[in-house]
Structure formats: structure tokens, C-alpha cells
């Protein structure tokens, strides 16, 4: 199903009946990533809303270099468009978590509870490795600016970024600028503004948003519970659906 939100075409699903829950997907994913979770929440008596963020899945690119703030505004407008009066919970994964943190802290999103699964928002401290890569990248940019080297540049870029572990960036394509905008933003201080009960679900072996991020969030959010899922990685709800959903069920009662 499609709906127009702030002039932006949005692909969405509304399923089930009961208190409303909104699910926000991560970078590079689509609403389909929550098929299993949505089905479960419908079964436990919820109306589940989810949508593709602009630039992902079947929702077209916003046409401008958005940052987290615009995604927050869009999410708020979606809630209004759907005429959701009371939002029992909003759950987000990775980038979706980022949108929730900023949205709730600024008062634009007003859910009763938050579920943050491997949420992004903590900017990693610059390591020696990252600094070295940045230096190499900048040098590379200058060298490959020479005529005839444009093709080489793309290849080198690819190698470099995959060595630096930033695969999201490479796959971002037309979304590259938005990606850069979002990762530049550190949301640590926003965490202190969150007063609602919050469930943090983290995979023990998360390499994208390491468990340490979850611990920082737990410290900053007034009322937060951190559930660590053993053996799971960044896609914690996929890696161990049972464990994740047990925590979520308990939290939503």
C-alpha cells in the first residue's frame, strides 16, 4: 500500500488490530525485514504499522540530501496521516533506532515505550585505523583527480571502503550523501532526554553497532533495560528471533 506523506510517496503496511506499534527498519533494509516480528506482534494483539523510509524499498528517494531530522519529521507525519492517537510502542533497528532516539528526545515522536534493537547513534571514537584510512582516502582523491584516472578512482574507493569496513556506504548509491549526513551526527546527548521505558536489544557479537553502544545508551536513558542476546550479531532479531521476541513480549505486557 502507498500513502502520500508530506508530498513523499511512502510504501507501508498496516496489519492486525489492537494497540498500535510502529516498526522502523535499518539502513539498506525495507519494511520486509520485520515480516516475522510483525506477524508475531499481530498475533499478540497489536496493530502493526511499518513503512519503507524514503530511498529504501518501494518508497522513492526524497530528492534532497536528508539527514536524521527529516526522517524524524516524516515519521511523525506518517503517524499523523495514519491517525494513530496513541502509540503503544515504537521499535527500530539500527538506523531506525537513530530516528527514534532523535524523534523522542525532541518530542516529535511520543510513544509510550521504545524498543531499540542494535540502534545506531553513538559516533565511534576515531581510531588509528580510521584516521589512517581517512588520510589515504584524501590523498587518493587528489591523485585520482588527474585526467583519465576517474575509473581507477571508483575501483580504489571500493577497495578502500571495504577494507575500512564501511560496506553500507558503498551500497548506498544515490543515498551516499544522506548516509554521510546521518553518521556524522552523534546522538549521545539526546539519550538523556528520553524518559519513556526503553528496551535495548543487542547481539553479543554486533560489529556494526557494538554492544558498548548499547551500554552507553543504557547509562544515558533514564529507564532502560538492556537485553544481550548471546551469539547474535547486528541483525539480532533475525539471528535469534526467539530470544529477541521473548524480551519484547515481556516488555510490552
Amino acid at each position: 500500500m502507498k500513502v502520500l506523506v508530506n508530498g513523499q510517496l511512502i510504501e507501508y503496511r498496516k496489519e492486525g488490530g489492537g494497540p498500535a506499534v510502529l516498526l522502523l527498519h535499518g539502513w539498506g533494509a525495507t519494511l520486509g525485514t520485520f515480516d516475522q516480528l510483525a506477524a508475531h506482534l499481530v498475533k499478540t494483539g497489536h496493530t502493526v504499522y511499518r513503512f519503507d523510509f524514503p530511498g529504501f524499498g518501494s518508497s522513492p528517494h526524497p530528492g534532497a540530501a536528508w539527514s536524521v531530522g527529516e526522517y524524524v519529521d516524516l515519521t511523525a507525519a506518517f503517524i499523523e496521516k495514519m491517525k494513530i492517537k496513541k502509540l503503544k510502542a515504537v521499535a527500530g533497528h539500527s538506523f531506525g533506532g537513530r530516528v527514534i532516539i532523535k524523534g523522542v528526545a525532541t518530542g516529535k515522536l511520543r510513544p509510550e515505550r521504545l524498543i531499540l534493537m542494535a540502534a545506531a547513534g553513538i559516533r565511534p571514537k576515531p581510531t588509528f585505523k580510521k584516521a589512517a584510512f581517512t588520510a589515504i582516502a584524501k590523498t587518493g582523491k587528489v591523485v585520482t583527480a588527474l585526467p583519465g584516472l576517474a575509473g581507477v578512482r571508483q575501483k580504489l574507493q571500493k577497495k578502500l571502503y571495504s577494507a575500512a569496513g564501511s560496506s553500507d556506504y558503498l551500497q548506498a548509491g544515490a543515498m551516499q550523501q544522506i548516509f554521510i549526513n546521518t553518521i556524522k551526527e552523534d546522538l549521545t546527548e539526546y539519550l538523556d532526554e528520553i524518559t519513556q521505558p526503553t528496551l535495548l536489544v543487542w547481539g553479543e557479537h554486533d560489529t556494526e553497532t557494538p554492544l558498548s553502544d548499547g551500554k552507553i545508551m543504557q547509562q544515558h536513558i533514564a529507564s532502560a533495560e538492556l537485553v544481550v542476546v548471546p551469539q547474535a550479531g547486528h541483525f539480532v532479531y533475525d539471528d535469534d528471533f526467539g530470544a529477541s521476541v521473548t524480551a519484547i513480549d515481556r516488555f510490552l505486557i
Binding site: 500500500m1 500513502v3 502520500l4 510517496l9 496521516k81
Partner: peptide, 20 residues
């Protein structure tokens, strides 16, 4: 761009999408 609707609210949303 095709939507099935059951009430006026949905109809309005669907008209917006079709007009897009």
C-alpha cells in the same frame, strides 16, 4: 498506484497517491 479503500479517510489517502 492502485488502492482498495473501505472508508472516506482511506479514500482521501488513495486519491492523493493516485494524483501523485
Amino acid at each position: 498506484g492502485i488502492t482498495r479503500v473501505v472508508d472516506t479517510d482511506e479514500l482521501h489517502n488513495a486519491l492523493e497517491v493516485a494524483a501523485y
